[in-house]
Amino acid sequence: MKADKTIAFLGAGNMARSIIGGLVQQSYPSQSIWATARSQTTLDKIPAQWQIQTTSDNKTAVQQANIVVLAVKPKQLKDVLATLAPVIVNNKPLLVSVAAGIPTSQIASWAGDNSLAVIRSMPNTPSLVGKGATGLYANKHTTQADKDFITELFATIGNSTWVEDEELLHAVTAVSGSAPAYFFLLLESMVATAKKMGLTEQDAIKLASQTAIGAGLMAQQGEYTVTELKQQIMSPGGTTEQAIQFFEQNGFKSLVNDAMEACYQRSVEMATEYK
């Protein structure tokens, strides 16, 4: 990626560190990466070999930056932006939010200028191992060059998908943001049953998790729909057909639908909590 911008991360938690790590692996200049945190203990978690710039002073970092990644907790974001508003209004960096639930219009307002370019991102935890799925939305003040750069930025930790309507980020939350936990729940249940069947926990995790990875890759290839992929494994009268029929007869699809709807509605509610 074109390394001509200075990027400041406000907050140095797991997600910020995963993105920074992706940048470092892509040989992005360390002197062009800043990270801030209120606690030196948090800053100390950043590997020293990355040699990026760190500080507990948000203003110092923002003054250097073309891009400011807002990686603080949602409940802290209003106060952080209020303190930085004079610097942001003067420098007009691109703001990229990792804070769940807060609309771009609210972020720009808290930063003191409704004409600021703001991008919202909804990454998920597999970003920590470079396999993330991130939903992205850009407000009308964002340029195509901004979007292209941010696409490359999130490519360092997985893949990303842009949505044209900010409200669709609620759906992104339900289908990828929260979804790693759905798969962990399924794996947890599979491993528990496998142990009852005589497998060790280690072997069950190894087999089930690799199966999840392989199935995901097959779905990503796009040669077949997920329905076709499922049917290809279901030999008439076979073991897979027996399991799938049991799932479907006992409301599996309805359960998934209801769980995702609950996730979606909670995301909608959260969007109103920080106004």
Rank of each mutant, 00 (worst) to 15 (best):
A48H: 12
G101N: 04
I107V: 03
A65Y: 07
Y28D: 00
D79Y: 09
T42C: 09
Q31K: 04
I119C: 01
D44I: 03
V89W: 09
L84P: 04
T36Y: 01
I88S: 06
K131W: 00
P103R: 01
T125P: 03
Q53A: 14
Q63K: 14
L70K: 02
V89G: 06
P93K: 09
K131P: 00
P29D: 05
K75H: 08
T83Y: 08
L23D: 07
P126N: 11
L116D: 06
L116Y: 07
S27A: 13
A65C: 09
L94H: 06
W110L: 01
I102R: 00
I88T: 06
T41P: 14
D79N: 13
Q63Y: 08
Q26D: 13
A35F: 00
V96Q: 02
A48K: 13
R38Y: 09
G130E: 07
G101F: 00
Q26G: 10
N91Q: 14
A99E: 01
V96M: 01
M122C: 09
Q64N: 05
A99L: 05
S32Y: 12
A48W: 08
S39E: 10
Y28T: 01
N91W: 05
Q63H: 10
I107E: 00
A85S: 15
Q53D: 13
N124D: 02
L116A: 13
K45A: 14
S56V: 12
I119D: 00
A65D: 04
V98G: 02
N124H: 00
S32T: 08
L70V: 08
L70Y: 04
Q106E: 11
I107C: 02
Q63N: 14
Q106M: 06
P123Q: 06
S30G: 11
P93N: 05
Q53S: 15
N91E: 13
Q106R: 10
K59D: 14
W110G: 03
P126L: 09
N114T: 10
P29L: 00
I67V: 13
D113P: 01
P74T: 09
W34G: 00
T54C: 10
V69W: 12
P47V: 04
Q63V: 10
Q51I: 00
S56H: 10
K59I: 15
G112Y: 03
A108W: 04
Q51E: 10
P126A: 13
K78M: 11
